[in-house]
Simulated assay, not measured.
Amino acid sequence: MSASATPSVPLKYIALPIITVAIWSINIIVTRMAADVIEPMAISFYRWFVAALILTPIMLLKVWRTRHIIRPHLGKLAVLGLLGMVLYQGMAYIAAQTTTATNMGIINAFLPLFTMIVGMVVLRERPTLFIIIGGALSLYGLGMLLGHGDPSSLIRQGVHLGDGLMVIGCLLFAIYSVLLRLWRLPIDLWSILYIQICVAVLVQLPVVLFMGGGSALNIHNISLVLYAGIFASLLAPFLWARAIHHLGPSRTSIFMNLIPVFTALIAAVFLNEQLHWYHLIGGLLTLLGVMLTQVNVTKIKQILHRSSLKVS
C-alpha cells in the first residue's frame, strides 16, 4: 500500500494494541514472580489449559455447529496455533533460562521490523516513511532504556543460545501476525482463538506428561497461572487479533515496543524497582516513535490542501 493511500485509523482501534501490550507487560511481572514457584514449561501448558477450560463451555457447541465452515481451514488454524501460541511462547520460556531479560526485551523490539519485512514479502506492503522513522526512533528509545543510557553497550554483549531462540520465536510471531491478516479466515475471532488454544493444549500435553506433569499447581502459583491463562492467554490474543484486523500487522506490531516501558513502570510500583533518567528518556522516545507510525499521510495532505485553498 502506498503512502498516499494510507487509511484513516480511528482512535478506538489504536487502543486495542495498547491494552494488549499492558496485559502482556503485567504478565512479564507475573512471570518473574512465578520463577520460584512453577517451572516455565509447566506454566506454558497450564496457561492455555486454563483458557481452554473457560472457553469450552461457551465455544464448543458453536464450533460444532459451524464445523462445515471451519473444517476447510483447520490446517491454517493449526499453523496459526503452532506459530503464535506454542512455538513463540514456548521458545520465550526456554530462552529465559539461558539469556537475560534485557536481551529478550531488545530482541522483542525487533518484532515490528520482522513483521514489516514479512509483510512486504507476503502482503507486498510498502511501509510509509513515518512508519520507518517511527520504528527506528522507538528502537533507539529501547536502546536507551535497555542499555542504561548507552545503546552501543547492547551491541557489545555476547550472543547466547537463548538469544537465538528469541530471534527465531519473534520471526515466527511476525509470520503469525502476517498470516492472520493474509488469510482473513471466514470464521469469527472467538472460534479462531478457541481452536488455536486447543491446538496449543494438544501439542504441549505430551511434553508435560513426558516431564512427569511438570510443576504441580498449588496455593503459591495458582493465581499466577490464572492471570496468564485468562488475561495473557485469552483476552490479549483476541484483542491483538482485532488490532491486526483493523490496523494491519506492521502498525500493530510496533506497539510491542511499549512492553519494556510499561513493564518498567509496573515494576516500579509493584516490585519497588527504581526508575532512572534513561527509563524516562527511552520511554518518551519509544512513545514518540509509536505515535509517528500512526501519522495519516493522506489526512495531512488533505489538511494542507484545504489550508492552501483558504490562503489563496
Rank of each mutant, 00 (worst) to 15 (best):
L137T: 12
L139H: 02
L142K: 05
G147P: 04
G147L: 04
H148P: 10
H148Y: 11
G149A: 06
D150M: 12
P151G: 08
P151K: 02
L154T: 09
L154H: 01
I155A: 14
Q157F: 09
Q157A: 12
Q157L: 15
G158L: 07
G158E: 08
G158F: 03
L161Y: 11
L161Q: 10
L161K: 12
G162W: 01
D163A: 04
D163K: 00
G164K: 07
M166R: 09
I168Q: 04
I168C: 14
C170L: 05
A174M: 04
I175H: 07
I175K: 09
L179R: 05
L180Q: 14
R181S: 12
L182D: 13
L182S: 15
W183Q: 02
L185W: 01
I187H: 00
L189A: 11
L189Y: 05
S191N: 11
I192R: 03
I192D: 03
I192W: 00
L193Q: 10
Y194L: 04
I197T: 15
V199Q: 05
A200I: 07
A200T: 03
A200M: 05
V203I: 12
L205F: 07
V207S: 08
V207Q: 10
V207I: 15
V208T: 13
G213N: 07
A216V: 14
L217K: 01
L217I: 15
I219W: 10
I219E: 13
I219H: 14
S223I: 11
L224V: 07
Y227T: 05
Y227M: 05
A228N: 08
G229T: 06
G229S: 08
F231N: 04
A232M: 04
S233I: 03
S233Y: 01
S233C: 06
L234F: 04
A236Y: 01
A236R: 02
P237H: 04
P237V: 01
F238T: 15
R242V: 10
A243L: 08
A243V: 08
I244K: 06
I244D: 00
S250W: 09
R251F: 09
M256T: 15
M256H: 12
N257L: 08
